[in-house]
Structures are given as C-alpha cells and as structure tokens.
Lab assay of single mutants.
Amino acid sequence: HMTFVALYDYVASGETDLSFKKGERLQIVNNTEGDWALAHSLTTGRTGYIPSNYVAPSD
C-alpha cells in the first residue's frame, strides 16, 4: 500500500469515517469510492473513510 500524509485535520462526520490530524500518516486500502478513500491510519491504527483530497502521497 502507498503511504499518504494528511494535509489538514479532518473530523469524522459518521461512524464509517476516519478522523485524523494534519501530518498523520495513512495507507489507502481502497480508492474506488471517487472523492472518498478507505484508509488505515499508521498513527492510530484505525481504519475508515477519508476525503481523498485531504491527503497527498508521502515519500
């Protein structure tokens, strides 16, 4: 899985969403939902949907 870094803070709007903080590292599990991606946080160990425009690929 590619690793991504959060560009902004995001507060989950539902139970299936994943909250994260700017700078948090995430792995995209499934990116077939258009503007949303299923992601796993390497920081918190949690998995949920995130807005895909809130993250960018990290080196």
Rank of each mutant, 00 (worst) to 15 (best):
N53S: 14
P57N: 10
G14A: 12
D17M: 14
P57I: 12
T3P: 06
V55M: 07
D9K: 01
D9A: 04
K21V: 09
G45V: 01
Y54Q: 06
T16N: 14
S52C: 15
K22Y: 04
W36K: 07
W36C: 10
V29M: 14
V5M: 06
V55S: 04
V29Q: 08
E24W: 02
L38R: 03
D35S: 10
K22D: 02
L26N: 01
E33D: 13
F20G: 02
S41I: 02
D35M: 12
P51R: 04
L26I: 10
Y54L: 13
L42Y: 06
A6T: 06
L42D: 04
Y8K: 08
T32S: 11
W36P: 02
K22F: 04
S58V: 15
E15P: 14
K22V: 07
S58F: 15
E33H: 13
E15W: 08
A39H: 00
E24Q: 02
Q27L: 15
W36H: 06
A12Q: 05
V29W: 13
T16G: 14
G34R: 07
Y8D: 06
Y8Q: 09
M2N: 11
S52L: 15
T16E: 12
V29H: 15
P57A: 11
P57H: 10
E24A: 00
E24Y: 05
A56H: 09
S58R: 06
L38I: 06
T16Y: 15
S41V: 02
G14I: 07
Y49L: 11
Y8N: 06
H40L: 14
S58D: 14
P51F: 02
Y10M: 02
K21M: 09
T3Q: 08
Y49F: 11
F20T: 02
L26F: 15
Y54S: 10
Y49G: 01
T3M: 11
I28A: 02
S13N: 10
D59Q: 12
D9E: 06
G34T: 08
E33N: 14
A37T: 13
L42K: 04
H40R: 12
L26D: 00
L18M: 14
N53M: 11
A56Q: 11
E24V: 00
A6W: 00
A39T: 02
G45C: 07
L42E: 06
G48E: 02
Q27S: 08
Y10N: 01
F4M: 10
L18P: 06
F20K: 00
S52N: 09
N31S: 12
T16F: 15
P51T: 02
N30C: 15
L18V: 07
L18R: 01
V11E: 12
T44I: 01
N53W: 14
D9H: 03
R46K: 14
Y8M: 10
V55K: 03
A39Y: 05
T32R: 10
K21N: 08
K22M: 07
S41W: 02
T43F: 06
Q27R: 12
E24P: 00
S41P: 00
S19W: 04
Y49C: 09
L7I: 08
G45E: 03
D17R: 10
V11P: 04
S52M: 15
H1E: 11
I28G: 00
D17N: 09
D59E: 12
M2D: 09
S58T: 12
E33K: 13
F4I: 05
E24R: 00
F4G: 03
T44K: 01
H1L: 13
R25H: 13
V55T: 05
P51G: 01
Y54D: 02
V5W: 05
G23T: 01
D17G: 14
K22E: 06
D9M: 02
S52R: 15
D17H: 14
D59G: 12
I50Y: 01
N53C: 12
H40Q: 10
T32D: 10
M2G: 10
A39N: 00
I50M: 03
Y10Q: 01
T43W: 07
V5L: 08
L7W: 05
A39V: 14
K22C: 06
A6Q: 00
Q27T: 12
D35H: 12
R25I: 15
S13Y: 10
T47F: 10
L38D: 01
N31F: 15
Q27V: 15
G14S: 13
G48M: 02
P51K: 05
S52I: 15
G23S: 02
N53T: 11
S19D: 06
N53K: 13
L26G: 00
G48A: 04
V5E: 06
N31P: 12
E15M: 10
P51E: 01
G45T: 02
Y49T: 03
P51D: 05
E15R: 08
L18N: 03
E24C: 03
E33W: 12
V11G: 04
Y8E: 08
Y10I: 02
P51A: 02
T47L: 07
G45Q: 05
V55E: 03
N30W: 13
A6C: 09
Y8W: 11
N31I: 14
S19V: 06
Y49R: 09
V29Y: 12
E15V: 11
V5K: 03
R25K: 13
K22T: 06
A39W: 03
V5I: 14
H40M: 14
D17W: 10
S19G: 08
W36L: 06
L18I: 11
Y54W: 07
V5F: 07
V29E: 08
D9V: 02
H1F: 13
F20Q: 00
N31A: 12
V11K: 09
F4P: 00
A12H: 04
S13P: 08
L7H: 05
E33P: 10
M2P: 12
A12I: 03
D35N: 11
A6N: 01
P51V: 01
D35C: 09
Y49E: 03
L18Q: 03
P57S: 10
I50N: 00
D17V: 07
S41T: 00
D9S: 06
L18C: 05
D35W: 09
L26T: 00
V29K: 08
L18K: 02
D17F: 15
T16P: 05
R46M: 12
N53R: 13
A56G: 10
R46W: 07
S19C: 05
S58M: 15
S13A: 12
E33M: 14
Y10T: 00
V55G: 05
S19L: 07
A56K: 11
E15T: 11
G14Q: 10
S13W: 09
S13V: 15
P57M: 12
Y49Q: 05
I28Q: 01
G34V: 06
G45H: 07
P51M: 05
D17I: 08
G45F: 05
R25G: 04
V11Y: 10
G34I: 05
G14V: 09
T47E: 08
P57W: 13
L18S: 03
K21T: 09
T44M: 01
R25L: 15
T47R: 07
N30T: 14
G45A: 03
R25C: 14
E33Y: 13
T47C: 09
S13C: 11
S58I: 15
S41H: 06
E24F: 02
T43M: 07
Y54V: 06
Y49M: 10
T32Y: 14
E15Q: 11
V55Y: 10
S13R: 14
G14P: 02
I28D: 00
G48D: 02
K21E: 08
G48S: 05
T3H: 10
R46V: 06
L26Y: 01
A39K: 00
M2Q: 13
R25M: 15
I28W: 04
S58N: 10
T32Q: 10
F4E: 00
G23V: 00
V55D: 04
A6D: 00
L38C: 12
L7P: 05
G14F: 09
N30H: 12
Y10C: 04
F20H: 02
A56V: 14
V5Q: 04
E33R: 11
R46P: 01
S13T: 14
V5S: 03
A37P: 09
D35L: 12
G34L: 07
F4H: 07
G48Y: 04
P57F: 11
T16H: 15
A37K: 13
L18W: 03
S19E: 06
Y8L: 08
A37I: 15
A37Q: 12
T3V: 15
G14T: 10
N53F: 11
A12Y: 02
L26P: 01
L42F: 07
G23C: 07
R46F: 09
P51S: 02
M2T: 11
D59Y: 13
S19M: 07
T32P: 12
E15F: 09
R25N: 07
D59T: 11
